[in-house]
């Protein structure tokens, strides 16, 4: 579906992403994890065409994304950055309606309205549709932005730290919605996430990055091991794989690794 070949990003002498080669499985949820400054967000932004790459390629079904027209690209890949602080006076349904811009350039059709309704219902925020974005809580606002991205009806969604600053309930709500997007609608979801427990319990596939390179890219079971995580983060992990999910304990490490 979406793949990356020898992708590199550098600012002057400083290399942020170096020689990244990846194949993201279609219809699956992939988490990008790794310490701060590992290049996760940079990689995601290059895949979403928000950042120019220094060299290498990003391919969507074998085609270089650089050759796609902006509107066509926006019907195949949707990117959501951390929700910006926003001083616009607009309601949730007006925001979600922007998700239809790649299709109707602002003139909504019946099909667009159906997609908007579906997206609002999918993340269960129908009751907020008339609320103003700047009056919502952080979690509700993130849900509204996610609904906009879902309304874009792309095969692939790229999300940059969608759980940032959310309480546990909203974080679970977002992750469950993303899981359902894969399972029920067959969409490919790729996200940057810092909470290893969310990554372990909700992903199919994990890409761990460190120092701008891919450290490990594999199904969850192969990445979420104490040895792998210890090496990735330089921190002691106690990983319990239970029948109902993973629990990674790093809150009280025995000692910082060398």
């Amino acid at each position: 579906m979406i793949s990356v070949q020898s992708l590199r990003k550098r600012y002057g002498e400083k290399v942020v992403v170096e020689d990244v080669n990846l194949d993201f499985p279609a219809g699956k949820l992939t988490s990008l994890i790794g310490p701060n400054g590992a290049g996760k967000t940079t990689l995601l932004m290059m895949m979403g065409r928000l950042l120019a790459r220094s060299s290498g390629e990003v391919r969507l079904e074998g085609e270089d994304i650089a050759v796609l027209r902006p509107a066509d690209f926006a019907r195949r890949i949707a990117t959501l950055r951390q929700s910006p602080d926003f001083n616009l006076r607009l309601t949730v349904d007006e925001l979600v309606a922007y998700g239809r811009f790649p299709y109707s350039r602002g003139f909504l059709t019946a099909e667009d309205h159906a997609a908007i309704e579906q997206a609002l219902a999918f993340v269960e925020i129908d009751h907020l549709r008339r609320a103003y974005i700047d009056e919502l809580s952080g979690g509700q606002r993130q849900m509204a932005f996610l609904a906009m991205t879902i309304a874009q009806q792309t095969d692939c969604l790229l999300l940059d730290e969608p759980l940032n600053n959310l309480d546990m309930k909203h974080a679970v709500g977002i992750m469950r919605a993303l899981r359902r997007l894969c399972d029920e609608q067959g969409r490919t979801v790729i996200l940057v996430v810092h909470d290893i427990n969310f990554a372990a319990n909700y992903s199919d596939h994990i890409v761990a990055m460190k120092g701008g390179r891919v450290f490990r890219a594999a199904p969850v079971a192969q990445v979420v091991t104490s040895a792998c995580l210890r090496e990735l983060y330089g921190l002691d992990f106690e990983v319990s794989a239970r029948p109902d999910g993973y629990f990674c304990n790093y809150f009280k490490p025995m000692g910082i690794c060398k």
């Binding site: 902006p70 066509d72 926006a74 019907r75 990117t79 910006p84 926003f86 811009f101 602002g106 991205t149």
Partner: peptide, 16 residues
């Protein structure tokens, strides 16, 4: 209107 959502969001929504 889309550009007022910010550069990144505008690009993601298909604005050249």
């Amino acid at each position: 209107d889309v550009v007022s959502l910010g550069r990144d969001q505008a690009i993601s929504l298909g604005v050249d």
